[in-house]
């Protein structure tokens, strides 16, 4: 029973990973790709790690998997902010159908 629940959570995580990577290929510019890929892959990896924790139970493996969840919460989103800011500062424009760019106006 516990094994089945763990495998289902891992399966949901892998599906989110798939949508994130597919967005990385399909979307048109850097910022949209960053957005889809960060969300999809971060939550997908959380699903995989929580599933590993459920599968292994409360021992050293499971606790380390939960610790990795907390670390990914801080590092992944912060890394995506840094990349977006760096891309904007290095002069990459938004996609041609974009509506507004308040950041460009304020610089």
């Amino acid at each position: 029973m516990r094994e089945l629940i763990g495998l289902i959570i891992i399966g949901i995580g892998v599906a989110f990973d798939f949508f994130g990577s597919f967005g990385l290929i399909r979307l048109p510019d850097v910022y949209n790709r960053l957005q889809a890929a960060t969300k999809g892959v971060t939550v997908g990896t959380w699903g995989i790690l929580i599933g590993v924790c459920v599968l292994s139970g409360f021992n050293s493996l499971g606790v380390k998997a939960l610790l990795a969840v907390i670390l990914i919460f801080f590092t992944s989103a912060t890394g995506s902010h840094a990349l977006g800011r760096g891309a904007h500062k290095s002069g990459i424009k938004l996609w041609k159908k974009s509506v507004c760019d308040k950041y460009e106006e304020d610089q």
Binding site: D17, L24, R33, A37, V41, I48, V52, S76, S80, S90
Partner: peptide, 26 residues
């Protein structure tokens, strides 16, 4: 097409490898 695209892909690759390692551990 640009350098920033490649960096985004490298970042995402890093998070994917974490998932692969966790699954291999089990």
């Amino acid at each position: 097409p640009t350098l920033a695209d490649r960096m985004v892909a490298i970042d995402i690759l890093g998070v994917l490898v974490v998932g692969v390692c966790a699954l291999l551990a089990v």
